[in-house]
Structures are given as structure tokens and as C-alpha cells.
Design a protein around this nucleic acid. Structure first.
Ligand code: MN
Ligand code: MN
Ligand code: ZN
Ligand code: ZN
Lengths: 141, 141
DNA sequence: GGTAAAAATGCAATAAAATGGCAAAAAGAC
DNA sequence: GTCTTTTTGCCATTTTATTGCATTTTTACC
């Protein structure tokens, strides 16, 4: 599956269309929640034919982020999480403090608050911290 | 300076009042922006008499966070950032993508959006990503 | 299709941030 | 001051990410 849209977006961003970039981008687009680089590697190891090196995944994600095809979320966990930048309006995320699950919420991002002079905003991010349904149910384990 | 209020809050939380906990809590309270554990260590190394071990700082911060005296922010950088939990209403933060400066904004946190059923929110966090005044000025360096 | 230049990759080494184990030290109750 | 429990310091280790460099892949051009 050599999705022509992914290829085009990479080419339009001025980069070379490589197996690693396509695989990473497709992986993030198919996931229904933001993934860590390691989770991307796991997914590719299970579902893909050619599995890129871990460093290549880091570099591919990084390139995609710098060129606006994916975005890195602010997280409380140790690992970074990424999601594809798509048509969908920017939205809020829920982060479970127990299992670190991060999931997209329907809520749109709130409006930009006033900033100190000279500061320029590029993105507004809303993070809800709490317990997911599963963790709440089994909290006393 | 053995601030009785900090001591009391630690004791009320059920812990022992130690030099490290007091120093870390005071450091975060005196800083005007959220700090990383390493920045706390630097501050203490410069301003304090007894400088705790790095691991002790991690453990003190962690204890303070678990007991609600400080809170950990969601960040895009690799290092965690903490700020004291004080009287002040929960507020938004600005994170500079170039220098990683994180600063408190006057804007209060927006209301909680609807969550999937079974999910419980404990905190709402608003993060503004962009460029700080200094980085914007010198962006082409 | 073949060739050359530029960009991307794999692999090993290294760095940054955080955590775990354990004996020694400090804190608090008496 | 003594005793018990908690905390600390030190060292080793883990997790996550980055860097250097030779090799491979991509793309532009013929
Ligand atoms: Mn999302
Ligand atoms: Mn703040
Ligand atoms: Zn959970
Ligand atoms: Zn800046």
C-alpha cells in the first residue's frame, strides 16, 4: 500500500519519499490515538514487511514533525507522543495518570488567551489529566 | 529560612520535614516559572548551603507531587517541569519551541470538556506553543 | 535504463533524564 | 538520649533520544 496521498504530502514538503517515512506516517494515521516512537516501531514490526531501524524511526518522525505532517503532543510521561496532522480540527487529549493512555477527545481546542507582548503563539493544546475507564475500575489492584 | 508554612504543609501531608523537601519546595515557590529537576539542583547549588544529591531531588519532587504540594506539567521537552500548587487559580502555560522556556500565563484554565463515559478528570491543562519574545527576535541566528 | 549528486539509513557509540537497591544518616516519638 | 521509621547518598541501571560516519537509496538528469 503505497498511498499516493502520503507520498505527495512528503514530496510537497520538500523531502524524499522513503519507505520509513511512508510507513511511519501511515502507522500514525491508522492508529486511533497518539503513539510513541517505540509504539510505532512495534506496530511496524508486527504489520510491516520492512522494519526500519529505531533511529530511522526517530529521524522520520522528527522530519515529519518539522515539516508539519505530524505533531508532537505535550505529555506527562517520559516518552513523546505523535499524531498525524490531518483535516480534523485541533482537539483536546486525555491522558490517564495510571496507564499513560493518551486519547483524542471530540472537544475542539479553546481560543488563544492573551500573551505577553512579543510572544507569538503557534498552537493551543488542551490536556485533560485523570483516570481512564479501565484504570478507574481496577484502581485498587 | 525555615519557612514554617512549608514545614507545616509537608507535615500535614504526612511526611517528615527534611532539608531536601524544604529546599525544593521553597525553590519552586520562589521561581517565577516551572523548573526541571536539574534546574532546581542548579538553583540550590548556587543559593543554598546544603545541596542535596540529584536523586534526592528527584525523590523530593516526586513526594511533593504525589502529595499535592507541587504539580508536574505536560511538556514537549524531554525534562519534566514542576510548579508549586498554591492559592493561585490553575492557569495556562506558554512553552517556547526554540528555547524551551516555560512561563505561566494569566489566563485561567478553560472548563472541562465532556469525556467518554467512565473517564474521570482530575485536572485541565492549557498549553500554548510558540516563540517567546527573545527567540522571535533572534530567530534567524 | 544508466549515472552522479544529494539525502536518508543502519549500526555503534553516546547523551540525557529518570529509577532502583542498599547501607548510612536523619527525623520524630517516647 | 534511645528506638523505630523514613529519608538520603552513592552507585548501578533503565528508558528515551541523539550523534558520527560509512553505506545505501532516492531523485534529477541525460
Ligand atoms: Mn489527537
Ligand atoms: Mn504556572
Ligand atoms: Zn488508564
Ligand atoms: Zn524562547
Amino acid at each position: 500500500m503505497n498511498d499516493p496521498d502520503f507520498s505527495r504530502r512528503i514530496r510537497d514538503a520538500g523531502g524524499r519519499v522513503t519507505a520509513a517515512r511512508l510507513a511511519v506516517l501511515r502507522c500514525l494515521a491508522e492508529a486511533d490515538e497518539p503513539l510513541t516512537p517505540d509504539e510505532v516501531l512495534e506496530h511496524l514490526a508486527r504489520n510491516s514487511d520492512h522494519v526500519p531501524d529505531r533511529v530511522t524511526i526517530y529521524r522520520a518522525i522528527d522530519w515529519l514533525a518539522v515539516h508539519g505532517l505530524v505533531r508532537r503532543l505535550a505529555t506527562v510521561g517520559r516518552a513523546a507522543r505523535y499524531e498525524p496532522v490531518e483535516d480534523r480540527e485541533a482537539h483536546a487529549h486525555f491522558q490517564c495518570r495510571r496507564c499513560a493512555q493518551t486519547r483524542c477527545l471530540p472537544a475542539p481546542t479553546p481560543p488563544l488567551p492573551p500573551l505577553p507582548s512579543g510572544y507569538v503563539a503557534e498552537r493551543v493544546e488542551l490536556v485533560i489529566h485523570g483516570l481512564c475507564a479501565a484504570c478507574r475500575a481496577g484502581e485498587n489492584e
